[in-house]
Design a protein around this nucleic acid. Sequence first.
DNA 1: ATTTTGTGCAACCAAAAGGTTTCATATATT
DNA 2: AATATATGAAACCTTTTGGTTGCACAAAAT
Lengths: 121, 121
Amino acid sequence: MRRDVFQAIADPTRREILNMVAYQPLNVNSVAEHFDVSRTAIYKHMKILIECGMIDIKQQGRERYCEAKLTKLNEVSDWIEQYKQFWTTKLDSLEQYLEELQKEKPITTKKKKNGTSKSTR
Amino acid sequence: MRRDVFQAIADPTRREILNMVAYQPLNVNSVAEHFDVSRTAIYKHMKILIECGMIDIKQQGRERYCEAKLTKLNEVSDWIEQYKQFWTTKLDSLEQYLEELQKEKPITTKKKKNGTSKSTR
DNA sequence: ATTTTGTGCAACCAAAAGGTTTCATATATT
DNA sequence: AATATATGAAACCTTTTGGTTGCACAAAAT
């Protein structure tokens, strides 16, 4: 089973959990209480976050306090960063590209016998 | 079924597809050829990307050219941005927090009769 | 000592995800 | 006209997800 940051933050419940423990360490039950689903369901989400290193757990008596370790988010923002240029500069380049392709076409597609071959249905 | 950017980029195949069409518009088959799985499988990924507005499609004869529309990634980087402070400043605050909690404990745990001993929120 | 609380885990379930094969159809190509 | 190509979609299958209930057990609290 995949266990990476991209996968981890894909789920809205997990993003909410991260948000909660980002501001303040909380024990498992405190986190679970914020949601409608069962504690176990939330715990499973938390386990995924633990397994991919996005939250840290420390036992404290019978409680376990969780804290967000958000450094891993760099992996995501780095990935995004490399594309920033594309949506800041290359606006609507598809149409341009196709227009150019259109002009070239006569050369590449020249092998037509004659004009309108078929009725356009 | 959820159809948001977070979910869209969670899959590595879809990230790869985005990467391909970010640099140059490509038709469906060209994209599919780069992968081991079937064209249909890739098309399904592309459909998801189309549905959440991350790629744009333009018919060109019998081919359909796809281009990445990466603006949506702002949604993700904005979400991450709000947490940047947490992993640049609050290093290992959990231990600190627990130490403080340890000191307070005798005080905080004292109020029992009055209910609402629900953990810190 | 007994009960309550906080937690983890197993067993089970329905739905979604990701894949395959097959078919239909419109557009080229010959 | 006949064939090849590019694509979309349906039907089906397996694995993963996200959820549930129930039990076990250690640490408080009574």
